[in-house]
Design a protein around this nucleic acid. Sequence first.
DNA 1: TTAACATTGATAAAATTTTAACAGCCATTG
DNA 2: CAATGGCTGTTAAAATTTTATCAATGTTAA
Lengths: 221, 221
Amino acid sequence: MQKKEAPLHNNLAWPTVQRLSEYLIILEQFAEGGREVISSSELAEVYSNTPSQVRQDIFRLPNTGRVGQGYRIKELAEAIRETLGLDSVTKIVIVGCGRMGMTLAQHIPFGEHGMKLCGIFDNDPTIIGLEIEGTKVEDVSILEKKVVESAVSMAVLCVPASVAQELADRLVSSGIKGILNLTRQRLKVPPGIYVQYEQIICSFMQLAYKCKQSPRPAPNL
Amino acid sequence: MQKKEAPLHNNLAWPTVQRLSEYLIILEQFAEGGREVISSSELAEVYSNTPSQVRQDIFRLPNTGRVGQGYRIKELAEAIRETLGLDSVTKIVIVGCGRMGMTLAQHIPFGEHGMKLCGIFDNDPTIIGLEIEGTKVEDVSILEKKVVESAVSMAVLCVPASVAQELADRLVSSGIKGILNLTRQRLKVPPGIYVQYEQIICSFMQLAYKCKQSPRPAPNL
DNA sequence: TTAACATTGATAAAATTTTAACAGCCATTG
DNA sequence: CAATGGCTGTTAAAATTTTATCAATGTTAA
Ligand SMILES: NC(=O)c1ccc[n+]([C@@H]2O[C@H](COP(=O)([O-])OP(=O)(O)OC[C@H]3O[C@@H](n4cnc5c(N)ncnc54)[C@H](O)[C@@H]3O)[C@@H](O)[C@H]2O)c1
Ligand SMILES: NC(=O)c1ccc[n+]([C@@H]2O[C@H](COP(=O)([O-])OP(=O)(O)OC[C@H]3O[C@@H](n4cnc5c(N)ncnc54)[C@H](O)[C@@H]3O)[C@@H](O)[C@H]2O)c1
């Protein structure tokens, strides 16, 4: 069975993109544990879907598995990164360094995923100047300057909702390409600029819906 | 045009559930602003989808809009909450009160969404006893006892990945129904228990993929 | 060397989700 | 009071996504 030439337009289904990003986390964990090869059924077992779906998701990726053998974990991870656009260093900035912004700065291993944190901004004088994981918090007044200078492509918004749109506008006019918006404010952006919304409370609601499907089980201590 | 009787089994499509939870956030913001009525096209404009999809999503909900008039925001919000399973108070606990756990405790308005935070647990003596937004951090050794006592139905895991599975097991054996897992550890749980995974880094990756579709625009200051 | 085995790559069928279309209803206006 | 216009509820069609299936292939063991 021959692998077809890679499709010109790597246009993946959105659900596939979502799963691929999660597979990557799983693959990295396996790799850390020293594992070299994984099969679609093992990955499906961990992810809780089917081997068929895993193969279908991986099908479009440039890298090939070995028929009968499974996938080389490192190669597969690299193929996913490349396909998602994380092959070159993706520059990002954090805007708003309160509790949330600081947690992200300290805790998300950007480097491990082909991204580089190259700026943290706030407007609170007591926060400006703090150094977090090697990055100094800067005054938000120089946001545009820094974003343009470093050709930053993505930003995370962790400011109060009331100023989110204003900062989004400033980011967009500085040439940013995508915004990860953690505030509750829905943003208006021009076409060609992408916004990804993320609300933990929504995950709770979705979980509540799942839970509603069956009654609370009895404790089993 | 007659509204059909409510379907017996309110089995919503999963993408619909996801959108409904986001509509709710939007509706709450409109309500705060004093708005009383909203049309499917206005909601679609803010959410960035189509009026048709909005109507299709709302279609199965018990509450009715007024033909020609739009939806009463409060009624619609209430219908969504009810459908998602947030009509009665859903009890939740936070497990792990480091940076992430603390941010959630302080920042997520559980009460506004039909949920009640009724416990925060950690194993660090310097953290145990702290009071966060009116809830004391307790020793994780009494986790099972408290979960059973209060009939808690959902938990958020914000502990190090290395202890995530162990704590998930303890939660499950205490009768928990759903786990919102913020750690990178994929969890094994028995059937009938639901896990919702949430990784901000995955949102970044998904955003990177969106951004890859077109080149970075020139700044426009 | 050959046969058995496990597992992918690929395709086709099934299922789900989105989009489109429009009849019917309610408020408003003259 | 009748006509108009806006917008929902509902259905059906289109598009997308998931699932099933199986030939092909490298590996291992006899
Ligand atoms: N998506 C989620 O799940 C989630 C969870 C928690 C919080 N949040 C949201 O994240 C945002 C931040 O939350 P937080 O807990 O960090 O709040 P916070 O108040 O601790 O932090 C906000 C930060 O923004 C800074 N700021 C205010 N105005 C600014 C401006 N004009 N320019 C630059 N910086 C500015 C403040 O100085 C502060 O440091 C809020 O909108 C909150 O609702 C989202
Ligand atoms: N999903 C995301 O987007 C995201 C973002 C940031 C962090 N995280 C994850 O969230 C988790 C916590 O991150 P953090 O920044 O809060 O780390 P942290 O180290 O600040 O907090 C971990 C807390 O767990 C407590 N803990 C350790 N062992 C425990 C046990 N057995 N029982 C109870 N409590 C215990 C520690 O005392 C500490 O307070 C980590 O797994 C991290 O990877 C996820």
